[in-house]
Design a protein around this nucleic acid. Structure first.
Length: 419
DNA sequence: AGCACA
C-alpha cells in the first residue's frame, strides 16, 4: 500500500514543537497560519514565505505536545488542512526552534548607524550629534557621510549596552529644535546597528571626530568656512584656535557663576580653569580645556546658545589668546579644577544654591517625551577619564554627560552635586 | 508538495 509508506515516513519523523507547512497559497500571511494552528496550542513564532516558491512556512508552538496534537490530527483526519482552498501539508520540522534571520542592522554592536532624516548635511553639525549621543555615555568616535539614504553618522560607543540604550532612547525621535538651524523643523533619527566595531578616523574634521585622541591632526581643508571662522576665506579677521575659550555673556538676567559655566562647558570635556570678569560693562569668562579639539567642540556647540531659556545669558564664544590661565584664588569668579581641593569640593556640595547651574533640559524633555532622556546619561566615572588627557578636572564625572538637569532660577535642583 | 544563511 502506498499509504503504508506515508505512515512509515511519519513515524520516523522526530517530533518538534516546530511544524513545517507546505503547498501554501501565494504569500500566505501569518494570520492565516495562526488561524489554522491555534486550535491545537499556543503559537509562539512563525516564519512565512519560505522556500524557492515562498509557499512554505514554519510555525512554532509553545509545547511540543501541541505540535504533536496538530500533526496527529491531520495525519488521521479525512479532510486535510487547507488555507484559501489549498490543501496544506503538515509535518514536524527537522529543527527544534524557529530562528529569524536578523537583518544586519538588528545585530547589536557598539557602533550605531544613524540616519538623520529630512536635513542637509550642513544642517546638523557633528558637535550637535556628539552632544545628543553623549547623554548616554562616552562617545569614542563619529563619522558622518552622505548616502542615498540621506545624511548619516556612525557613532562609536564603548560597548553594545551603551549603544543599545542610546538607540532605544533616540530611535524615531528628533534632535531638539534649539540645536537645529531655524529652518529645520524636525529631523527624525533612524538608528540601526553598524557592523563596525572600531571606526578608523584619520583626522578631526567637520565630518569625522575621534574623541579618544584629542591630539589627532586637524584636517583644516576638510572644515568648511562656516564651521571654522578662523579659517574663513571671506577676509574675516583670523582667530587662531586655542584651548581657552572667551565667552561673552549677553543679556545676563540671571547670575552666572563658575559652577554654572563649569556644568555647561563640562559637557564637552574636562574643564581645567574658569575665570569670570567684567569688560566694557559686560560679563565675560575664560574657560580652559586641556586641548584645542575639546575647545573647538564646545565652541561650535555652544556658540549663540543661551544658558537659560528665553534668550537669557546668551553665549558668544571666541578663542582666547591665552593658553594657560593664571588662577590665583578660589572664588565665585575663578576656579582651578586641576588642583584637588577637598575643602572646595565640600563647600561646593553644601554651598551651591539650587538655581545656580543650568542647561536647557526643559526643552529636551519636551522633545523627548517620557524618555527620561535628559537624565538618561548613565555616567560611569570608572569608564572614561583615562581616555582624556591627564590633568582632567576633579569633576571629571560630569564630562560627556550631554544634557544635564535644568536648574533654571526657581526650578528645584536634582541632586547633581550629590555624589 | 518536501525544511529557513544572507
Amino acid at each position: 500500500m502506498s499509504g503504508a509508506g506515508h505512515a512509515q515516513f511519519r513515524y520516523t519523523q522526530t517530533p518538534s514543537k516546530v511544524i513545517h507547512l507546505r503547498n501554501l497559497p501565494w504569500e500566505c500571511h501569518e494570520d492565516e497560519l495562526i488561524q489554522l494552528c491555534s486550535p491545537f496550542g499556543k503559537v509562539v513564532n512563525t516564519k512565512c514565505n519560505v522556500g524557492a516558491n515562498k509557499n512554505q512556512a514554519f510555525v512554532e508552538f509553545a509545547e511540543q505536545s501541541q505540535a504533536i496534537a496538530m500533526v496527529s490530527y491531520y495525519a488521521s483526519s479525512p479532510d486535510p488542512a487547507h488555507i484559501r482552498g489549498k490543501t496544506v501539508y503538515i509535518q514536524y520540522s527537522n529543527r527544534q526552534e524557529i530562528v529569524h534571520n536578523k537583518s544586519p542592522g538588528d545585530v547589536p554592536g557598539n557602533v550605531l548607524l544613524v540616519t538623520i532624516e529630512g536635513v542637509e548635511a550642513g544642517d546638523v553639525s557633528i558637535e550637535v550629534i556628539h552632544l545628543v549621543f553623549s547623554a548616554f555615555g562616552f562617545v569614542h568616535k563619529i563619522a558622518t557621510f552622505e548616502k542615498a539614504a540621506g545624511f548619516q553618522a556612525l557613532i562609536q560607543f564603548s560597548d553594545a549596552e551603551t549603544a543599545c540604550t542610546a538607540k532605544n532612547q533616540l530611535d524615531g525621535r528628533s534632535i531638539p529644535r534649539y540645536l537645529l538651524p531655524p529652518h529645520v523643523t524636525s529631523c527624525n533619527l533612524r538608528i540601526s546597528y553598524s557592523a563596525h566595531t572600531d571606526l578608523n578616523i584619520k583626522f578631526q574634521s567637520h565630518r569625522s571626530r575621534d574623541y579618544t585622541n584629542p591630539y589627532l591632526p586637524v584636517n583644516s581643508t576638510a572644515f568648511e568656512g562656516s564651521l571654522q571662522p578662523g579659517l574663513g576665506t571671506d577676509g574675516k579677521k583670523l582667530e587662531p584656535e586655542s584651548n581657552v575659550l572667551l565667552a561673552a555673556i549677553e543679556n545676563m538676567q540671571y547670575a552666572v557663576t563658575v559652577d554654572t559655566l563649569h556644568m555647561v562647558f563640562s559637557s564637552f570635556g574636562p574643564v581645567q580653569k574658569i575665570a569670570i570678569f567684567e569688560k566694557n560693562g559686560g560679563t565675560q569668562a575664560l574657560i580652559q580645556y586641556p586641548d584645542v579639539t575639546t575647545a573647538t567642540v564646545a565652541k561650535e556647540a555652544l556658540e549663540g546658545h543661551c544658558i537659560y531659556d528665553g534668550g537669557y545669558c546668551k553665549l558668544h564664544i571666541t578663542y582666547s589668546r591665552h593658553t594657560d590661565l593664571n588662577i590665583k584664588a578660589y572664588s565665585d569668579r575663578s576656579r582651578d579644577y586641576t588642583i584637588p581641593n577637598p575643602n572646595i569640593a565640600s563647600s561646593q556640595l553644601s554651598g551651591v544654591p539650587s538655581a545656580s547651574t543650568t542647561w536647557q533640559t526643559h526643552l529636551v524633555t519636551s522633545e523627548y517625551p517620557n524618555s527620561g532622556y535628559a537624565a538618561a546619561g548613565p555616567v560611569d566615572p570608572s569608564q572614561e577619564p583615562s581616555s582624556w588627557p591627564p590633568g582632567a578636572s576633579p569633576a571629571a564625572g560630569s564630562i560627556h554627560t550631554g544634557f544635564q538637569p535644568d536648574l533654571r532660577p526657581g526650578v528645584s535642583s536634582p541632586p547633581y552635586y550629590g555624589k
